[in-house]
Design a protein around this nucleic acid. Structure first.
Lengths: 229, 229
DNA sequence: TCAATAGTGTCTTTTAGACATTATATG
DNA sequence: CATATAATGTCTAAAAGACACTATTGA
């Protein structure tokens, strides 16, 4: 074996997205070490010997944000392996995209917070540690893109869900408003996207007709796609 | 630092796709060690200390298939990190998808070959070493999917190219036949996909009207998309 | 001339988008 | 009753697909 070939530290960083108050949120953890320069970062952990990458991702969420989401959608985003991306030494980082329905908040003692992704783009945006800004940008692009041609949007809602909730996912992730009538017809004409279930959702405090309920359908790829306006 | 956290061997495996004789081909290397059980494998190399992952991918192609393709499209596919995916010890493998125009053949002494991807699915298909069959399946799905909503198809042709050549890419990767007239109109209506250039392509031996020539346009994402039939 | 391939025109079906209308709830 | 939200219907414009037709080459 060549002397130039060695082993690398391998880490997993997780970009967890969820929807809260009709807005898209990202999970960040407070800086714990002065070397981070007071910058917030994605939850991340080193990979252990006996642990798959997916397991490491779950552990990072559990240990750093006290989030146990066994039913969360988890998919790999990219692996970042530039030689000097971590000033403390070479670390190859496998980034994950995680999506959860609007459920638990990270507890206060976890030093984790859900931040509005709209606050990450602007002028007074907080920069993130390492290359995590880049990872977040890639995660957002992935989520926005996969909403079009996969059933990924259903990962943001709990079953059963209403079509208004599903539409709210598209609106929050894409940052647009959609016509409820046309959205409904499009979802209905996309085979295997959602399936109706019994029951009705109670209307809000101001009244309104109760909404029909749906579950995730069998198809992961959407035909036809839900194209962005 | 916990004793259970250590470092991993990190490798890069490359699934290189190209089109030859109007068919989609995959680059495989001949087994060199008996422990592979005589199975063909994707070209792969361990990552060196001073080398980015992209550099390792290029080196794998250069050393194992004598392919120097600095203009090849190279993108990450996924990272495979199951604990026992390599019987020789834990290896985290970053898989790449590479696309090249129909150019060089791997020389004989390189022990590499272009195989028809149609021969990888059937009953008498040759299984691949490690989890490379899985990687190839992921690579094909990625390529087929990205042809729809990105300008990836242009990575399979050399500039300048004709619309018939571009259509041939879609037909080979998707395994379908497309109407030339409708394909042309669709490409023309997709902003930034291709741009016309001066000159004509000479017709084939059987004659035919000379074809107009095009180059890659500025857009990476296609609006509207080239949806699969 | 014919065969072959490139490129255009036209028609029909399907889909997207705007928006009116009806249905069922709360207060 | 008014108001709010869900669900359906209708009309128009745009896009997709089938396919006839014209254009330009080699033999």
């Amino acid at each position: 074996m060549s002397a130039r070939v060695s082993t690398c530290a391998v880490a997993v960083d997780v970009a967890l997205l969820t929807i809260r108050d009709s807005r898209l949120k990202l999970l960040l953890v407070e800086p714990d070490a002065p070397r981070l320069g007071g910058l917030w970062a994605l939850p991340g952990r080193r990979v252990r010997d006996d642990e798959s990458l997916d397991d490491t991702a779950h552990r990072a969420l559990r240990e750093l944000a006290r989030i146990t989401a066994p039913d969360a959608h988890l998919e790999q985003l990219r692996t970042y392996g530039e030689v000097s991306r971590d000033p403390g030494g070479r670390v190859v980082s496998v980034a994950y995209l995680a999506l959860t329905p609007t459920t638990e908040d990270p507890p206060d003692e976890s030093r984790a917070r859900l931040v509005d992704v709209g606050d990450l783009d602007g002028a007074e945006a907080t920069p993130l540690a390492y290359d995590h800004g880049r990872i977040v940008a890639d995660a957002l692009e992935r989520a926005r893109s996969k909403l079009e041609y996969t059933a990924l949007a259903t990962a943001f809602v709990e079953e059963p869900f209403t079509l208004a909730e599903l539409r709210g996912v598209y609106e929050a992730v894409w940052g647009v408003t959609l016509d409820p009538a046309n959205f409904r017809r499009k979802v209905a004409s996309t085979r295997g996207f959602v399936v109706p279930v019994e029951g009705r959702a109670p209307p809000g405090p101001g009244g309104g007709r109760p909404a029909k309920l749906y579950e995730r359908g069998p198809e992961q790829r959407l035909h036809p796609a839900m194209l962005r306006p």
